[in-house]
Design a protein around this nucleic acid. Structure first.
Length: 545
RNA sequence: GCGCCUGUAGCGCAACGGAUAGCGCACUAGCCUCCGAAGCUAGUGGUGCAGGUUCAAUUCCUGCCAGGCGCACCA
């Protein structure tokens, strides 16, 4: 079984281009695409089109030249049984057609080795820290957090699948201004409950949940100065429950308070001071982020002696590297966009490669009811929460929905519509395919036989379905290179479509035993791929619906 | 004013710079004596505007128009 058919092909194409006197920049950027349509084969390269100008020949001529040599080389290589045809098509694309033998061996590989067969040998094994959500413990999680939670969780799953050592982390902002305000908010609500007349400031936390916390605090006789921490812990337990119900689990909850206590901030500052990246001005301490491309220098210690948000963050990211992580991924909301350059600057100042820090901006998820946008202010407590979305559309639909759009694009959904569309949500389309397969396997008198003759699968829909199965690994690598899991949901819908089309035209269980066995193998392979994909998305696999 | 994101069919969205721009909803016409009709088949209908780069632009660049979000010694 040839696992790296892509890599081997690229190697052969590369060798074939040696005599062509081509632009080395183009040759270095040799890659294979999935053709846009089934009739254009299984893999495709546009190299002839791109070489057309420098070689001063038509792309079709170049394609023919390349193909002629390639055909000879392939005949002499280990790929010879797996590539059945190479054709120049369209404007000059070179299209590769897999042989049926390749399809059948690959399908058998999936059935024999389950999801292991779907993993590609990327050679990637470095340790990655992916930090996401990290919402302040001052209220329930919003839909914006919900989107970040799913995108982060799914991306982590995919990286893990591809061989990375992944750790998921939630940075807990459990000290500072907002915790103080949270404490004061609780204190005021407590006085109110006791019958005092209070003037509740506008910038305090308005949500009704503060009353609940106040009642609880009174029962437990919490001292006033401890109200902030008490409230934060109370809310944190709510957040953890929300994430748990959303099937998002973190490996580490990293406390800012602990970070401050540890003295790591001072140590990082000492280092920066030695390097000359810190200076005093107007009574404040500034980080010279402009030395690393930031627009302006940033304050790290305010003139009142307290830290800005950046200070612990510098130490936090330094600590991430010191814990041995080679690649840091942060998922942030769009409001933090302007913050990227200063954090990258600090990473560079601490002697790390800023390219090893990937900041992914998860664009806003806004929610509306009946076309009217809902407000999203944590302090006012009027926003739509993750909990409400979970209650209304369910975990599977919510997770899939949040993954369905490119992470860098806005996501807007009307709760009324989302509820209405629940039965039509694409997640059901995919789950339905899984349930149908399960149902057939359950009802079948014939057992799955590993020595089945797969070459009986000759129908167009059967081969298309296998073809689709083989694209899974390719899709995983797209998710990696784009650092965005959304392509997985697109793929799963296409895979489900291929299955439904096959199912509709051809019976799996029939009087023909050999064919029944072959088709059972085909749907078992499909089941494995759908299961693998849905698991990565964190969506359940229903045997029945 | 500056920055980020987005303008694709009536609505919601796809298309890692490629081939005849796809899919769902809605609408129209079909398909269950047969493994699940939450499915399948066919039809209607579209790239905001103006330039540029490229062999090739929905995609990249510039300007304009429209919408969303953000621009602290807050976190």
């Amino acid at each position: 079984m040839k696992k790296n058919i892509q890599k081997e092909l690229i190697k052969l194409i590369d060798q074939g281009l040696v005599g062509l006197n081509a632009d080395s920049n183009i040759l270095d950027d040799l890659y294979l695409d999935l053709p846009t349509q089934e009739r254009f084969g299984d893999l495709s390269t546009n190299i002839a089109l791109r070489l057309s100008k420098t070689l001063k020949k038509s792309s079709r001529q170049i394609a023919d030249l390349i193909i002629e040599k390639l055909k000879r080389d392939i005949l002499r290589s280990s790929l010879k049984d797996y590539i059945s045809e190479i054709k120049a098509e369209g404007a000059g694309f070179i299209n590769f057609y897999f042989s049926e033998r390749y399809f059948f061996e690959a399908l058998k590989d999936i059935i024999d080795n389950q999801k292991e067969a779907l993993k590609s040998n990327t050679g990637k094994s470095s340790s990655v820290l992916i930090e996401f959500v990290s919402a302040n413990p001052t209220g329930s999680l919003s839909v914006a957090h919900a989107r970040q939670a799913v995108v982060g969780d799914c991306l982590a799953n995919i990286l893990d699948f591809l061989g990375f050592k992944v750790s998921k982390e939630y940075y807990l902002n459990d000290e500072g201004n907002q915790i103080n305000i949270l404490g004061k908010s609780t204190q005021l609500r407590l006085m109110e409950l006791k019958g005092d007349k209070v003037d509740f400031p506008q910038d305090y936390y308005q949500g009704d949940y503060i009353y609940d916390i106040a009642k609880e605090a009174e029962q437990r006789k919490i001292k006033d100065e401890e109200l902030g921490d008490f409230a934060a812990n109370y809310i944190l337990s709510i957040i953890k429950k929300e994430l748990d119900d959303f099937r998002v689990k973190f490996d580490c909850w990293y406390s800012q308070k602990e970070l401050t206590k540890s003295g790591k901030i001072e140590k990082a500052f000492e280092f920066l001071k030695k390097k000359g990246f810190l200076y005093e001005q107007d009574g404040a301490l500034w980080f010279k982020s402009t030395a690393f491309g930031d627009d302006k220098d940033r304050v790290v210690i305010k003139s009142d002696g307290t830290y800005t948000y950046l200070a612990p963050d510098i130490a936090y990211h330094d600590d991430k590297y010191k814990r041995g992580f080679k690649w840091l991924i942060n998922l942030w909301g769009p409001d933090h966009h302007g913050y990227i350059s200063r954090l990258k600057a600090s990473v560079a100042a601490l002697g790390r490669d800023p390219a090893s820090l990937s900041v992914i901006i998860v664009q806003l998820a806004t929610i509306s009811r009946g076309g009217k946008p809902a407000q999203m202010s944590t302090r006012r407590g009027e926003y739509i929460t993750l909990r409400e979305v979970l209650d209304e559309v369910g975990c599977d639909a919510a997770r899939f929905f949040f993954l369905m759009r490119r992470t860098s694009s806005h996501l807007d959904f009307d709760l009324d519509i989302a509820k209405k569309q629940t039965a039509e949500n694409p997640v059901y389309y995919v789950q339905y395919a899984y349930a149908r397969i399960s149902s057939i396997l359950r009802n079948s008198q014939v057992k799955l036989n590993k020595d089945v003759d797969l070459s009986l699968l000759k129908e167009k829909e059967e081969l298309n379905l296998i073809r689709k199965l083989l694209q899974f690994t390719y899709i995983m690598n797209i998710c990696l290179s784009t650092q965005d899991p959304y392509m997985l949901t697109v793929y799963l819908q296409e895979l489900a479509e291929s299955f439904h089309k096959f199912y509709d035209l051809h019976r799996v269980l029939s009087d023909n035993l050999a064919l029944t066995q072959a088709r059972l193998a085909l749907i078992e392979g499909t089941r494995i791929v759908i299961a693998t994909g849905l698991e990565l998305a964190g969506v359940l696999l229903p045997e029945q619906m």
